[in-house]
Nucleic acid binder design. Sequence first.
DNA 1: CTGAAAGCGCTTACAG
DNA 2: CTGAAAGCGCTTACAG
Lengths: 329, 329
Amino acid sequence: MMTTIKEVAKLAGVSVGTVSKVINNQDGIKENNRKKVLDAVKKLNYEPNIHARTLSSGKTNLVSIVVPTVGFEFQKIFLKSLDDVLRKSNYDSVVFPLLSRDRLARFSSESNFLFHTDALILASLSPKNLFRDGRVPTRKPYLIVDSHGESSNSVIIDNYLGGHLAGKHISLEKNGKLFLIGGYEPDDAFSSGVFSERKRGFEDAIRERGIESKEIEFKNIVLDWNQAFDFGARISRTEKKFSVFSVSDLVAWGFIEGCRTNGLYAGKDFHIIGYDDLSFSQKIGLTTISQPISELGEIAAEKVVEKIKGAANIENIVLSPRYVERTSN
Amino acid sequence: MMTTIKEVAKLAGVSVGTVSKVINNQDGIKENNRKKVLDAVKKLNYEPNIHARTLSSGKTNLVSIVVPTVGFEFQKIFLKSLDDVLRKSNYDSVVFPLLSRDRLARFSSESNFLFHTDALILASLSPKNLFRDGRVPTRKPYLIVDSHGESSNSVIIDNYLGGHLAGKHISLEKNGKLFLIGGYEPDDAFSSGVFSERKRGFEDAIRERGIESKEIEFKNIVLDWNQAFDFGARISRTEKKFSVFSVSDLVAWGFIEGCRTNGLYAGKDFHIIGYDDLSFSQKIGLTTISQPISELGEIAAEKVVEKIKGAANIENIVLSPRYVERTSN
DNA sequence: CTGAAAGCGCTTACAG
DNA sequence: CTGAAAGCGCTTACAG
């Protein structure tokens, strides 16, 4: 039913080896034969079977990208920059969003397809938390991105530094409370450790300013605008002067909106610093720790291509975030 | 290097056929032999080569999902519900976000991996706009989801009806302007036609209420909170009473925030109806057209599994959105 | 420059 | 219940 290379060879009057070379753009084929093959290919509407090609050549030209979820701008920016660079080396990215705990079981077996492309990028996810024995179940090259405490190849943005920058710059009110929100990593399997690092950096910076880190009230909130909204609405009912470090802009935004329901405004009635610097952040005047997400994707792509080509060195690349002041702090 | 089924067979002292049956959980194998095989598998740390399996069996147990992008809640909900159902039939979903025009070229070739899984779901994308000849370049079963005007198998949410509901319920101010925003589909390749349908339904409903559809001012805005914010800020500087139908909640939200910069509030100073009903919509009191996104994913999964099993009928399933009134209209 | 053939690592009738 | 062997559709030395 499917036409095969054999049928093409027969119609073109050449051997399958010759057809193979033509469809793979190899040279050293007489123009005459090349033409005959191309004609036969067109006539039979031939399309090579990529599974046979993979089995035979041992390569897929695919790179698996595992991400915890897909609903956020972070993934969009990251995946786009990553794919833009991969494409230049003739690789395609295929995305595997973890999405749910149920799906994790499938992702934990080496027989899953995701482990059988040319390489694997694990983004915003930690092997330690993800896999039973803490090891990525594959023999293919892989790279850890945006996740802390890895000994294998990794590319991250320095989250400790980001938190530290926030702690260094946050405006404090005399007798005002200090909140750290949004650092909750609820499900072990899904936590990458980046929030804890931000928290740690923040606390250290605060301490360096002579403030007891006990004075920080830590509020567990998942990456969720609605929860942050509720929390802001609740806090602003009783507190009237305070400072906030939110470990994500989305949570900061929700919090700010919640506070507004009680007439409290960021930058005026309270100080807040977020984390990420997404497209809405500038619009809402959010002072934040800006993450070079595109760069993260680009470098990850470059490094994974090097790995596929056989680079054996272990590299842990650490990019730096920066403090971006707007009106909220 | 990689251990193969042959080595397992040798160590276990059986034939490769027997090994194959054991690792595929087929019965009709003597318990004694099964055990020997399992021991050898464990000892050699054997993992079947899935590419060989695919070539031999002709199936991947994978379903490709093509989506235009990944940064939005819509995709998150859709992909999750889809995968939850696929998993029950032992299929894994692999996601291919289009992301950019550059990537489209790769997606247009039948030789791309995405066309070589067991089936394909094209979500929020139209073959007409995507592919040169308007045809999906595959011989595998496929399904169109959330895209209008398709003659092949499809599952959609009735966008005309959604727009019509909005037009029927929108509150109109005497002498106030009526805006329709967010319906711009900027890049042909990326447009699914759903916005045009919503617009059409809206205009018809307005007309049925005796209003000239010419009186609607149509504002091109892509699915972008920031642009909508700017537009809201600009409009609210001059207009003081108006009604708005936004073809997405995200755009409605940005617009509302923009208006607030001039002290105009939704539901009080102006009326607005959005579209989608996402997690933030309730929080901000947005009256909207609610889309059954999870259901869309579930039904798409069921239908694509039927297709894989060989169902030959052509079905176009149309789900219904509903009007959800909150405070903004 | 080309062809014949081995090989990639599985699955699956088929014979016994 | 099991084994020998054909077959899936390619790629790739190798000989000429």
